[in-house]
Design a protein around this nucleic acid. Structure first.
Lengths: 152, 152
DNA sequence: GCGGTTATCGCAACCAGCCGCAATAGCGGG
DNA sequence: CCCGCTATTGCGGCTGGTTGCGATAACCGC
């Protein structure tokens, strides 16, 4: 029963191959981390992932989760974003890329299309030759709701 | 009642008054944190500040430094910026505001004028009513030197 | 100045995340 | 199908930073 349908994005089968192609191995733990990321498809924390997995496989160590996230990131399969609270959030790389706005007063999170951030990236590239990854860190500020309240 | 003159610079004396005006207290430790920030005027880490102070006053606890930085930030005397390495850097609030670019490959730090970032802030304000603080987090990416090396 | 209120301190415990190490287990070759 | 090489695991311990707590000491009013 080997690789058949190339349904959409990344069938579990091909991920394994991709991992092996770089000399890395597809372990149970690694697969579990990927599954957890797929299920909680939105920015999860490593902690979240770890505890979700441990409900079923209590022997899996948190550090294994951290190392796997890192390894999968190297492969380009997952990415992380820094939010304001000092925990890092992880998600599958193929999820469409977007920027994040975080309200420092109410904590609300907004997503904005990359197209909005792109002009700045272009400018940084032109002026400084700097290839910016604007999705990597959330933009902090004050959301419209909080801004209007505080100015009243 | 003496609080009165708010000169815009911040002579040590008036800082004390400003602190007291909000019900906070001007302690030795707090003064030491401020002094350390003045000396190392550019983005220091809390750790740096703590160890600098402890050379003279070994009994001062790191947590005190952290709490004081926070308290001083609430007063608007100090601000912090998040760099890539998850280390927070602190500086006096009156230091001129600017953006930061960080190369994820060589770690180089570039400073850019706020005017470069301003258009994005304006757009976020217009489209989402979101008042962004673009100096708060450094922009990660790849600097021109590293970019040209890796593409060769 | 003196005393009471309470912000702040130092300490110890805690948390997310990371690292070194010995044991385990994928994977490719025979 | 088995073997050996070595990536990866689980564990224990560590780091940078944060928090809860009882003790201490600024500040304000008298």
């Amino acid at each position: 029963m080997r690789a058949r349908a190339i349904t959409h994005a990344t069938p579990a089968e091909s991920i394994g191959e991709r991992v092996r192609a770089t000399g890395k191995r597809m372990t149970v733990q690694r697969r579990l981390v990927l599954e957890a990321l797929q299920q909680a498809k939105h920015h999860t924390t490593a902690e979240e992932i770890a505890s979700r997995i441990r409900r079923q496989y209590p022997q899996i160590d948190p550090s294994t989760v951290y190392r796997n996230l890192e390894a999968l990131e190297e492969l380009g399969l997952v990415t992380h974003t820094h939010f304001e609270d000092r925990v890092t959030r992880w998600h599958l790389a193929d999820a469409h890329r977007h920027g994040h706005l975080i309200c420092r007063s109410c904590g609300a999170e907004l997503e904005v299309p990359m197209s909005l951030l792109e002009p700045l990236a272009a400018k940084l590239r032109a002026k400084h030759g700097f290839v910016a990854d604007l999705a990597h860190s959330a933009v902090v500020g004050v959301c419209s709701a909080c801004a209007s309240v505080s100015s009243r």
